[in-house]
Design a binder for these strands. Sequence first.
DNA 1: GTATTGATCTTCT
DNA 2: GAAGATCAATACA
Length: 155
Amino acid sequence: METEAYEPDDPASHSFAGRTPRNATMFGPAGRLYVYRSYGVHWCANVVCAQEGVGAAILLRALEPTAGIEVMRQRRGVDDVRLLASGPGRLTQALGISDAHDGADLREPPFALKPPRAEVAVVASTRIGITRASDLLWRYSLAGSSFVSRPRPRA
DNA sequence: GTATTGATCTTCT
DNA sequence: GAAGATCAATACA
């Protein structure tokens, strides 16, 4: 439901300052999962989306639970479906993603990549939760969705 | 209801 | 030693 883009020349991107042991996955081949720890507390999941050697990825900020909702509720400890994965940290907790999944190939089980089930209306807006280059319209979410981390970026 | 702060790891200065 | 792609609990109006 919601993603954010990060490129090598983006001051807010982990890959901007160069390759480190933690973000090494980000420089790997596309289609893999890049997991990093945020603020020492949360895990955040990204999809590597450029050729090997280029540190570019898409941050998964929110999703709409469609399967395994009960499991997600158990892991998150909340009932409201809209709160199960409405944020990067919440998303990884709901899916049970951790550093064990860093570098995993999204084309292999337990993951799977599929084409969209239907045409969707996507809106671009400013990014959230960062302090640098936050004016870039690199946050993409589905129009009118109630599963995003915030209904709208504050004006 | 909004505002502030704690938790706690990796990297950078 | 400080900041950061965050969340949730606490403090205040």
